[in-house]
Design a protein around this nucleic acid. Structure first.
Length: 114
DNA sequence: AAGGTGACAGTTT
DNA sequence: TAAACTGCCACCT
């Protein structure tokens, strides 16, 4: 995807990063935003996730949570417990829609992709 | 063309 | 210490 391609979009970058998240790991909106150079525009990442549904290849949006490790986007999954189930299947511990040991499973794109 | 929207984050009361 | 406010920027109507 080149910048001259009008089909390219900020979303594609977000999806690319999200798809790089290792299984059993999660990252935050802010980390992705920072990696993409958008700085504090973490809301755009969330907005991108809103459009992640139907993307091919699929975007593991369940691995993207807010800074507190809270599965804020669970409502966008159907049913609402899908997000948690997927994460638990990957070996994560999710209690009350919150990722346990978040600090341990946190995956920083800017640190992993140097 | 302009304004509103949004799955956040950091700062200030 | 906890709650509330503002900034952020690309996409959609």
């Amino acid at each position: 995807m080149s910048y001259s391609d009008k089909t390219y979009s900020f979303f594609e970058d977000v999806y690319a990063v999200v798809r790089l998240i290792p299984r059993g790991r999660v990252t935050s909106f802010g980390a992705i935003a920072k990696y993409l150079g958008s700085g504090g525009s973490s809301r755009m990442v969330g907005w991108a996730m809103n459009a992640a549904h139907g993307q091919h290849p699929p975007v593991p949006a369940q691995r993207v949570v807010n800074r507190a490790g809270l599965l804020t986007g669970r409502h966008h999954f159907a049913p609402s417990n899908t997000m948690q189930s997927l994460l638990e299947k990957e070996g994560l511990i999710v209690i009350e829609h919150q990722v346990q040991d978040f600090k341990k499973v946190f995956w920083d794109p800017s640190a992993a992709l140097i």
